[in-house]
């Protein structure tokens, strides 16, 4: 085992990590936004809207993320082609981002829904009694409280997502894992680079989960 070659390769690996983090941040933000919309639909009294959200969540939660990534990679360029009638190069990054956002939204939806339901009916009534509309009551009263309660779970899910971004290997995107593998192959040190990548993923996830645990304890008081 020869780990000495890793240091000179760090700038390259950092490029890969940047792509991983970019994908992560955008997928988390987009996923939570879409998940929140889905949660609101799910809780709507309109059976069509809540049925749609329920179906969405059920389908995405029952298929592998990898399937969604590959499907979108193959299908998104085609769909755009139909819509615009013209060939639009989307690239693996965009199709992966859409796949992650849509897939994670199903998981975030369930977290947000539980968070909203944990806020008492009285708070909604109080907001309405002050003359707030549904939108105002959600935005100013319910969601700020719900998000505070859900924060640890949302972060936990995002740590899982951080690990899952490595699946973009399937469509050839140069994320952290892929760039470590390609460096390792070029230098003839595949084992070392793979183990190093594993160690980095471990440290980031481990420390992030420790932070979440601490946050959880603080919120519990």
């Amino acid at each position: 085992m020869d780990f000495s070659q890793i240091v000179p390769a760090l700038p390259d690996l950092w490029e890969g990590m940047k792509l991983t983090l970019e994908l992560l941040v955008m997928a988390v933000v987009g996923g939570i936004a879409l998940g929140t919309v889905l949660a609101l639909l799910r809780l709507s009294s309109n059976p069509l809207l809540s049925g749609f959200a329920k179906g969405y969540v059920n389908i995405f939660r029952s298929v592998p993320l990898l399937l969604v990534i590959i499907w979108f990679y193959l299908a998104v360029p085609m769909l755009l082609n139909w819509i615009t009638g013209d060939f639009v190069p989307v690239g693996a990054f965009a199709s992966c981002l859409v796949a992650f956002m849509m897939f994670e939204a199903a998981y975030y939806c369930e977290i947000v829904r539980a968070g909203i339901q944990s806020i008492s009916r009285g708070q909604v009534n109080a907001a309405y009694a002050l003359g707030m509309t549904y939108g105002q009551a959600m935005r100013l009263v319910i969601l700020p409280q719900a998000f505070r309660k859900m924060m640890p779970l949302l972060l936990q899910q995002s740590i899982i997502l951080f690990q899952d971004t490595s699946l973009v290997y399937a469509v050839g995107l140069m994320d952290f894992l892929s760039s470590a593998r390609s460096r390792g192959d070029i230098l003839g040190l595949p084992h070392e680079f793979l183990l190093f990548a594993g160690a980095v993923y471990f440290m980031v996830s481990f420390f992030a989960s420790q932070m979440v645990k601490r946050l959880q304890k603080r919120l519990a008081v």
């Binding site: 109080a126 009694a129 002050l130 003359g131 100013l140 409280q145």
Partner: peptide, 28 residues
Amino acid sequence: PKLRSQVGMVFQHFELFPHLTITENLAI
């Protein structure tokens, strides 16, 4: 909403908004 904004209501469990300060509760 307009009608309710003209009718004050006080609840059994107060229902102040716990994430806001007292001043913000009064102002929002």
